[in-house]
């Protein structure tokens, strides 16, 4: 499992290559990238700043990864989350799951993203033409996470 909280950008194809190495048993690789959008509701986003809790951020990402590995037969897993100042179009987060079959890879990637939204210690602040503000947590995100309870 590769976990990273970092300010630098990531290279999706390089990260996929790392998981493939010389393996020929992987039937499925799913990757999810989250990007900075330039519009949020009726506001134009000029910049986004991501604050994080150093060390704990990576610990929490690892915990979420371990939970996913317990539920699905994953062969490989990468979770990268950026922090610092970002612009529209920039990468924020990358999740890659590999498995023998697609359903495990798809479901695990979605599970990781749903958990990460509410449980990883990162906070977004948006800079708009009207000024800057911290993004509020959405109850929607709690619902998305809770659907995995059972």
């Amino acid at each position: 499992m590769r976990i990273s909280a970092q300010s630098e950008d990531f290279d999706i194809s390089l990260e996929i290559e790392r998981l493939k190495e010389n393996r020929t048993d992987l039937g499925a690789i799913v990757s999810f990238s989250g990007l900075v959008r330039d519009i949020h509701g009726d506001k134009i986003i000029k910049k986004m700043t991501l604050e994080h809790f150093p060390v704990m951020a990576e610990k929490e990402l690892s915990k979420i990864g371990e939970l996913a590995k317990k539920r699905w037969p994953l062969e490989g897993l990468t979770i990268i989350h950026r922090y610092g100042e970002l612009s529209p179009g920039d990468n924020i987060v990358l999740v890659i799951t590999t498995s023998h079959h697609r359903s495990a890879a798809f479901e695990a990637a979605q599970f990781i993203m749903d958990w990460l939204k509410t449980d990883a210690p990162f906070w977004k602040k948006e800079q708009t033409e009207q000024g800057e503000h911290w993004v509020g947590a959405k109850t929607d995100d709690d619902d998305q996470k809770n659907r995995w309870d059972k």
Partner: peptide, 26 residues
């Protein structure tokens, strides 16, 4: 000490306590 807790969690002087709003990463 880098573990999420509720408002009824016991604390003592040696602890590191982080306080923050709900998370909005991803």
């Amino acid at each position: 000490n880098q573990e999420y807790v509720n408002l009824d969690h016991p604390i003592s002087d040696g602890d590191e306590i982080a306080i923050f709003p709900p998370m909005t990463g991803g």
